[in-house]
Design a protein around this nucleic acid. Structure first.
Lengths: 189, 189
DNA sequence: ATATACAGTAAACAATCGTTCACTGTCAAT
DNA sequence: ATTGACAGTGAACGATTGTTTACTGTATAT
């Protein structure tokens, strides 16, 4: 049983059950007859930095779900750059740290395309954040949901699309801000 | 102790420890002196659909980290639309189901801005996916990393930026495709 | 042939696990 | 004043936990 194969099996279990298996369960997963074999393997996984034990000796995934962050990539001209860093970003942690009062929406249309929000993207909206000038907001204008820039001046609030082909929106009736867009997630394929 | 407050405390614990606390630990977290009080509260959380017990009676988070998906938002003109759905997307699950051989990069520059990839965005790259024509790829051209469209014709492979202000790249030397961009994550603020 | 290291088995350990039971107080309704 | 419903205490339960120890092969190196 290689470390690689073991960590994959733990990963699969964690995704399905949202917890790590006990040593007895690992016996089944790994095909061992003795918990000692699991015990040794787990210690290797800890040494490899994939798992860790907290102060109470309880097991938890450490790097099991972290995505190695290789550095900064130039999207403009390729420029002489430093070697890719060996850092790692924990998206797991990032997502779990989102505030409590959030919801997500699937974007349809292209009025925010110049902001880099495409059709099909998922936007995550914080309900209770107070919108600042220039924030991307999900708003309900005259009973329809839309996603636009939030603008406020002494004339009042209006909504601006990032795509200049679309007009500004000056809400005639009621304007309800559903929340401020705090994250955009796009999945290719 | 309200369900709301309890689930927030569990959430906080899970984010820090990547596991649910035991009933004894919950006593401390919730401020109870008896595990029975915890037992009752956990049952309420299960009834509320926030936690669940698997076939072995082990506790795991259910909706604790799911983000309610309220539906589809029009980013173009506000159009008469259906009421927002009461579905829910589990980003937690989405992230955990990413393939194994991935890494992430922070984007610098604006050559992919028309694809909706902005400076500061995090792109997630699958190392081993075979790039198709039109895929966004992270490539190492003449020893520099860059992110571009992948184009292949009978003349060979070249890289195309989404921003027309930048030139096509015909690799003189070696071209190494670091991988295919499978996801883009942007965080505002 | 012998020694050494490695990987797994099998059994036992105290500690902790989730669960249950009988009980205590507190509040609201009758 | 009495009742009933809640919410929590405190102690006890068998089961399971992670860990340890002694042992068994099997392969490699000397």
């Amino acid at each position: 049983m290689t470390i690689e194969s073991a960590s994959n099996k733990l990963k699969k279990f964690f995704i399905q059950q949202r917890r790590l298996p006990s040593y007895a369960e690992m016996c089944i997963i790994f095909g061992f007859a003795s918990k000692k074999a699991v015990f040794d393997l787990v210690n290797k996984l800890i040494e490899a930095g994939l798992l860790e034990k907290d102060s109470k000796g309880k097991l938890s995934p450490k790097r099991l779900f972290s995505i190695p962050q290789l550095g900064i990539i130039k999207a403009g001209y390729p420029t002489p750059g430093e070697a890719l860093a060996d850092d790692s970003v924990d998206l797991y942690e990032y997502l779990l740290n989102l505030p409590g009062a959030i919801f997500s929406l699937i974007v349809k249309g292209d009025s925010m395309i110049e902001e880099g929000i495409n059709e099909g993207d998922v936007v995550i909206v914080d309900k209770y954040r107070t919108p600042q000038n220039g924030d991307v907001v999900a708003a309900c204008v005259d009973n329809e949901w839309t996603i636009k820039y939030y603008r406020k001046n002494n004339a009042g609030v209006h909504l601006v699309p990032a795509n200049p082909n679309y007009p500004l929106i000056f809400p005639k009736g009621d304007l309800m801000i559903g929340g401020v867009v705090i994250s955009v997630i796009r999945k290719y394929h």
